[in-house]
Design a binder for these strands. Structure first.
Lengths: 133, 133
DNA sequence: CTTGACCTTCCCCACAGGTCAAGGTTGATG
DNA sequence: CATCAACCTTGACCTGTGGGGAAGGTCAAG
């Protein structure tokens, strides 16, 4: 199977597959005599694993660790769980931060008339700085 | 005032200040005879405005628009409000997405023994794909 | 004069790819 | 066989928001 078909089957782009190979996330694919990359069922599995891990928000670095654990028959599931937990914590942290930003902005918006007068509390707060922690 | 002091006073880095100038977010700073950038009270105000806008999660592109509105005495506050609302919507969207990822991961983690056995439901789900929408 | 802190410009690095170019392969058609 | 479209290859450059550091100029104090 060529890279394009592998891409379509996994939902990745051909570009991404080459990129993953270039950064060492994937082992170099087999090649035809003319240099085309060839992918088999195993490779598709790995690509799909990467795709789903990315969809869950893991960084490529984390995906690399997950792949290692996946391919290691001796791994402890505790390792995977720890990685996932760590990722959950990062997500929660990000969610909190974004929520605080949103709330702050929401406050500002609610104090803004939103009419045609140039007077705007949002800009005033941005200029004066009393809005930010 | 030199760029280093301006940076310390506003919480930006000298690097960022030069960058903002290079992309046209800031007007080119005045220079001494020897080429050093010099910042006055007005410039500090603008830098602080940028810093606070960035802290609220606006992109540099959005900051540029806010700056324009800020410096435009004829602006309508409705414009600022619309920009802020738009940003709030983007934040909400991102928060939702991250929350869904977290919940999915949380489910997976809860089904994982987390012991020394190699059997791990998280990896199984990542490999099989039934976990993702 | 020397030292050290500061400034300047310039280039490379990160993430996670997108986009385009120039050229080689492959397979199907006339 | 010629040709054409669709596919593949590598490579280079773009995004956004800077960080890090090199090479060299400037300034103030000792």
């Amino acid at each position: 199977m060529n890279i394009g078909q592998a891409a379509r089957q996994t939902g990745l782009s051909a570009k991404m597959i080459r990129y993953y190979e270039s950064i060492g996330l994937l082992k170099p694919a087999h090649r035809t005599d003319s240099g085309y990359r060839v992918y088999g069922a195993d490779d598709l599995h790995t690509l799909a694993f990467i795709k789903r891990s990315r969809d869950l928000g893991f960084s490529l670095d984390e995906v690399g660790r997950l792949l290692t654990l996946w391919q290691d028959r001796q791994r402890a599931s505790a390792d995977v769980k720890a990685l996932a937990r760590q990722h959950i914590e990062a997500l929660n942290q990000k969610i909190l931060e974004l929520g605080q930003l949103r709330d702050t902005l929401q406050d500002l918006v609610e104090h803004c008339q939103g009419d045609h007068r140039p007077d705007c509390p949002i800009l005033k707060e941005l200029a004066s700085g009393s809005c930010c922690a």
